[in-house]
Design a binder for these strands. Structure first.
Lengths: 209, 209
DNA sequence: TTGCCGCGTCTAGTATCTTAAACGCATGGC
DNA sequence: GCCATGCGTTTAAGATACTAGACGCGGCAA
């Protein structure tokens, strides 16, 4: 009896009698299953590992990912508790239109302004409003892999040394001049695999002033 | 048997044995019940009316608002389908720290720039990035009360005539020189109760260019 | 091969949510 | 007063989500 588990999602009771409301189709939350699966894979976890962290069973994870059940808010909260992300962020995470993440040194746009010289990260800044910081990583320094903060964007440039950056399961080694730009809600991790300090100029949203 | 419906929300099983994880208390989605109740009241609906629109029963609404149950994603989606708002927006809606909404003419900050003179809506623009439009309402014009769009902000100034504006259940009559500024996710409605045209300069986010 | 392990899936049983229909309490007209 | 109407709440029956455990599969080492 595992066929018609759900009478669709949305308007499904009264197919006739139109023209009552604005009746716009709901395109939000296309399917939670795929989102969860992708998020889980990004973290490199198995269903059982996630289940253990979240305090649910592996079967539940499996059923949710197959969209066989519609989890309760409480359950979803528990599951997402496995990796630090809020439900709202989870529901609005844009998995598909993944914007360009890694930039090589030569891809940066250089902007000279009198004595000062800017190097613009990302080819166009549209839809990107950020703020910068200055960081130094000693050899072996590691932020851990659970660095999934709240909504926002994060970017930076490696000044010196080598930086191993993991974003959404993708790993890259960046050297001086290279840069990055990604959605902060994607799981990410900074690690200095070298033998000398690594200096990075990074930035994040939202603008704090 | 209506007492211990839920073993709290979050860490509730193992009160002892600390220092295991980062174990940060989850402050997101404090309680869905209050949010739903407030949203419903803003629309001036009864539990039964909302239930009818949403395609659920009034009992369900009642139980959810009391936090006696944790609705499934599907149910919550149906309920929120009663008024156009997404789940993510619903969960992130900031009910409490309601920013100032209404401004009288004399509260606007005047900014002169050569021949041109701007009147800044809102005392400070921090965290507010918007774009304007020009609107005219004939006598009796009414946008209806379901004007709840997606995330964003909305503001404007009445140029001439009288504008009756409803925001989050609060009603105000604005005359020439008065202005408004609110979160677009709050239910709002524009109506011209006068006998002459009402001209308004309004604006909304996100910036479309 | 054999055994062991971990993976994702499925099934039966339990816990939880959802429904339908009552209840108690107000308010307003007759 | 009395009835009708509408409100939010509650309860038993039904539907659904969740659990615990087993299943089949594939990889890997002995």
């Amino acid at each position: 009896m595992a066929g018609d588990f759900r009478r669709a999602h949305g308007a499904g009771d009264k197919p006739a009698a139109p023209g009552t409301e604005t009746a716009e189709a709901d395109d939000d939350v296309p399917d939670i299953g795929s989102r969860l699966k992708e998020l889980r894979k990004m973290h490199g976890l198995s269903q059982r590992e996630l289940a253990k962290r979240a305090g649910v069973t592996n079967g539940t994870i499996s059923l949710i990912e197959q969209n066989r059940i519609s989890p309760s808010i409480g359950s979803l909260k528990k599951v997402l508790g496995g990796f630090p992300i809020s439900i709202a962020d989870f529901l609005t995470l844009d998995l598909k239109p993944r914007r360009k993440v890694f930039y090589e040194a030569k891809e940066l746009r250089e902007i000279s302004k009198g004595d000062v010289s800017f190097r613009l990260v990302g080819r166009d800044t549209r839809g990107r409003s950020i703020q910068m910081m200055h960081e130094r990583y000693v050899p072996g320094a590691d932020t851990g892999e659970e660095m999934l903060s709240h909504a926002g964007e994060e970017c930076g440039i490696v000044i010196s040394g080598v930086m191993e950056l993991t974003v959404g399961g993708e790993v890259r080694k960046l050297v001086a001049g290279d840069a990055f730009y990604f959605d902060s809600r994607l799981p990410h991790r900074f690690r200095n695999p070298g033998t000398i300090d690594c200096v990075v100029v990074s930035a994040c949203t939202p603008p704090s002033f």
